[in-house]
Amino acid sequence: MLATRVLTAAVALPLTVLAILFLPALGLAAAVGVLMLAAAWEWGALARLDAGGRIGFVLVAGLVMAIALGLRDAGGPASTAAVILGLAALFWVAAVRLVLRFPAEWNATLGRRPLALIVGLVVLVAPVLAVAYVDQADEGPLLVLLLCVMIWGADTGAYAAGRTLGRHKLAPRVSPGKTVEGAIGGLVAAMIVGALGALVLGLDGWRTLGMALLGGWIAAISIVGDLTLSMFKRSAGVKDSGRFFPGHGGVLDRLDSMLAAAPWFVIGLYIVLRAA
């Protein structure tokens, strides 16, 4: 199992970096879209849809992605993408309440299939729009890569701090293995990544501070994404969302942090780069 995990990571990581750096914006958005459609299949399974229902959910998710991207590329309502990204960002903040009050709050909300599917459409489409938006900006590929490195840094920092210092459980009813110390380690690591990314991008002092703070927020909201998927899996009685990545589980298992982080990264970039 360990060898399979290492081999999968050794293949997936360089492919991801190459895709981010060299695919055109629409091509990268399409690649992310394919992953999100695979995630939609898994989301449908976690919502206990049968095979026909999951196919329908995937088709609807693909249609929403295509319409949202098409409206944006055709010069249509720019607010279409903004609304989807905004709704997704708001959901991930609201999900904190679900984590704190699991399972009662979960059973009354996302434990109900119609709401779970509606939320799924929003949060699965949002990363595609986020990548399309960021990648076409100045230094777009580097910014997309920075988002990924923030998430990877947060995961690495959380793992290292949790293994060495972890004592206090973060959300024992949802994910017993996560600790407060691990979460703090992840936040610190992502803030360092954000500051270093700002230096690479040639940003000034205040924007460097802003990028460091954005890294911390990305780490925090990524934890919410991870815990939300854990609630889904506990509710469905499964260990992994799927088997898309050998040794690592499904797409949702690997990209739950990205689902939560991507819309907030767009918002944070706008604040740091435009408003500062």
Rank of each mutant, 00 (worst) to 15 (best):
A88R: 07
V17R: 09
A195H: 10
I84D: 01
A198N: 08
K169L: 06
L199G: 01
E105D: 15
S175R: 01
G185Y: 13
L259R: 09
L2G: 10
P114I: 01
A61T: 15
L227R: 05
I20Q: 01
A195Y: 13
G56A: 15
V144E: 08
R54Q: 14
L147W: 13
D253C: 05
D50T: 02
L121H: 04
W206Q: 12
L69P: 02
A195E: 01
D226N: 14
L229T: 00
P77D: 06
S79H: 15
L69S: 03
R234M: 03
V224E: 10
L117W: 03
F91Q: 04
G215Q: 07
T80S: 15
V96H: 11
L203K: 11
A31S: 02
I84R: 00
A78Y: 01
I84K: 03
L15T: 06
R173V: 10
G153T: 09
A154T: 05
G27I: 10
L90H: 07
G70W: 08
H168M: 00
W106C: 09
G140H: 06
E139C: 14
G194D: 14
V93K: 04
V131I: 15
L28C: 01
L145P: 01
M191H: 02
G225V: 07
P176R: 02
V128E: 13
A171G: 02
W92T: 08
S222Y: 04
L273Y: 09
A262M: 12
A39W: 00
L85K: 06
L28W: 09
T156F: 00
T164Q: 10
S222E: 07
V96M: 11
L252W: 05
L145E: 01
L146F: 15
G202T: 06
V6D: 05
V122G: 15
I118S: 08
H168A: 05
A190N: 06
V128Q: 09
